[in-house]
Design a protein around this nucleic acid. Structure first.
Lengths: 205, 205, 205, 205
DNA sequence: GACTAAGCGAGACGGTACGTCTTGTCTTCAC
DNA sequence: GTGAAGACAAGACGTACCGTCTCGCTTAGTC
């Protein structure tokens, strides 16, 4: 119902942007800001459309008009506010670059962002649109950077030829998420070093 | 509030098992069964204490008396119904055992159990008690088996000496969860083979 | 608020019929027609400006510009569509004329118009403008005709001299409205005959 | 839906008042009082279930559980608070009694009760349950008293024999309601005297 | 066998949030 | 400068559940 509405809207918007009042940028901002603040204060579970509307001084309809789900709204507010630009330095060694990238990510997840990411991925499990939004908005860009480093390292002969990038990147990054989401074990430097060494050298003697 | 209630109960139960009617096994069964069915039908998000009580023909109080959270109830119902005993065969090679264990887990997660696990871990992110229950009830036993195999392999010299078991097991299993929860990429045999080979041999030339 | 708007408009319309696009007759028609149809379909309570605008293919503003209240709009649409011209025949006896007028009114109220009138008067109780519009547009003309007949009868000596016209007309017509609005008792010919006879002869022996 | 619920409830309540917490008299009181106050302050149109719940310190559900409609609630609150017991004195003349009854009613309707009655009857036009509640709770008892007086007068020979009581009572009382609801003309003593005289003597010379 | 605890079903209760609907206003563009 | 389109703040709607609170049973021990 709402979904189809949205499709209709989108379609219309694309085809006939003719008449009618324009979307209010002020409202958009107020909503995203309010969402971010509430997210920070109460967590995703404590977030409610009602609460956002009240704090933003906005009608609920306005939120429902532009966001399909509180999940998607949360993701957008998170991306909007955070967009923590992990600048990837390029050094001489691509392998060293990757290590640095992973360290940066781990550090990020140890901070408040970690909680957001945990909650986003968690709640995504029952909201496909939210999952899509989060993966595309947050994970994919980061993964692309990793891909890039990986390919450079491969080209430079720093890695064993014939490696499948996706498998490799999964192997490197997955444990960070596993600890974040599942085991709760710390994602500290010591662990990271052990883990990267292991993946680089392999388990086998 | 609820938490303190529980503490009180537990304490009382331990200290003074005096008089009064005993807990009804029939109700417990009905509740777990109803929960499982609803979980199957509507997913964790669609689950409600109200619904469980109605379907089980039970007062809500009875549920609140024995379970602190719908999350914990769901975990218990899942464990009760499923407890999918992955029998770990011991063959000549512990390394082969591990591979077989991982294959079994992947197969399990490709089926309906995968959805449960996804939802359980997802919802756990905002319910620490649920997370504890799920980790202890489901993941820890499995991890222990993996530990055991790993230690056997290590002792048999099938793995490089000096490896940290936790790091190794994380490296092996984490990507399965990463795909289940985050990327949504398939957890098929081909991937598993590539992944295990990679971890066994390492990334480095 | 709305009221002051209207005053402003009215004033402007009277003072300065100067420039700009003229009121669209097409819109006016579409609005009145749509209102009448919706009134017929959903009753006054189910009527909404929103709905009228949608069905008439008209902006809500256009409605608010020209009508102060959904009540007034409904009354106007009703008058516009219905204006059930009760043609009052003049026969030899003015007394007979009145009886015939009352019969016609009763017949009208037994049909679909009855429902409109019921709803209009009902809703008028909380909308003075609507009440005014309905009384002036619908009731007053009819009452004038009754007055006219009454005066003729009085002059012709058909009624007892010295009678107050308003009191007399109230006594004759009120029970029709009482049954329509309050008791729900039928307004059939038998009742009408009994009633008119009673009022003509009086209660007293 | 709600209606059928109510039927179910009622039926159950009648058949099996066995288990479950009992209806809270405190809530019932608070709701009726709040309703009455709001009715007095804002009129029926300004009344909202939401507002009643807030002022009564009560959940909306509790209201919906026991009253089908805000209309019925309003009627009940009105009856509960007002129940203006028009004590009908019995004097030597039943005719005089009726006159006194009508005077009392007119006086009542000139006061604040008049507004309630106007609004109740008005809103009843689009809420059959409310209409039923108001007629049965308020009008019928009063009409019964009128009937009684009328029958006494008839028996005493104060009225012309053969009169139909309903027609007569309608003729006497209807104009009061007509002025209240329709014409807005005053319901003062002078009018009442003229009217009663007219009906007693008849229109005819 | 009476007394005294719970446990239990039912379900009323005060709340919170839901997603929808309508209100009356405001803004934008087209005629 | 009217009019269609439609965004907007506001707020009520009726529903679903939450977690708590009676109620009046029904089971156990305990005296």
């Amino acid at each position: 119902m709402r979904a189809s509405n949205r499709v209709a809207r989108t379609a219309r918007a694309r085809v006939a942007p003719v008449a009618g009042r324009k979307r209010s940028e002020a409202s958009r901002r107020a909503i995203l800001d309010a969402t971010h603040e509430l997210l920070e204060r109460d967590g995703f579970d404590g977030l409610s459309i009602e609460g956002v509307a009240a704090r933003a001084g906005v009608g609920k309809t306005t939120i429902y008009r532009w966001w399909p789900t509180k999940g998607v709204l949360a993701v957008e507010a998170f991306l909007d506010a955070a967009t923590p630009s992990i600048a990837f330095r390029r050094t001489r060694s691509a392998k060293a670059d990757m290590r640095q990238q992973m360290r940066a990510l781990a550090a990020l997840y140890r901070g408040p962002t970690g909680r957001f990411v945990r909650e986003m991925i968690g709640s995504s499990q029952s909201d496909p649109e939210m999952r899509k939004a989060f993966v595309e908005g947050f994970l994919t860009p980061r993964r692309k950077a990793a891909h890039e480093s990986f390919r450079r390292a491969l080209a430079a002969g720093e890695f064993r030829p014939g490696l499948d990038p996706d498998t490799a990147i999964d192997a490197l990054y997955a444990p960070i998420y596993y600890r974040l989401l599942v085991s709760g074990a710390p994602i500290d430097e010591a662990f990271l070093d052990r883990h990267i060494d292991l993946v680089l050298r392999g388990l086998t003697a």
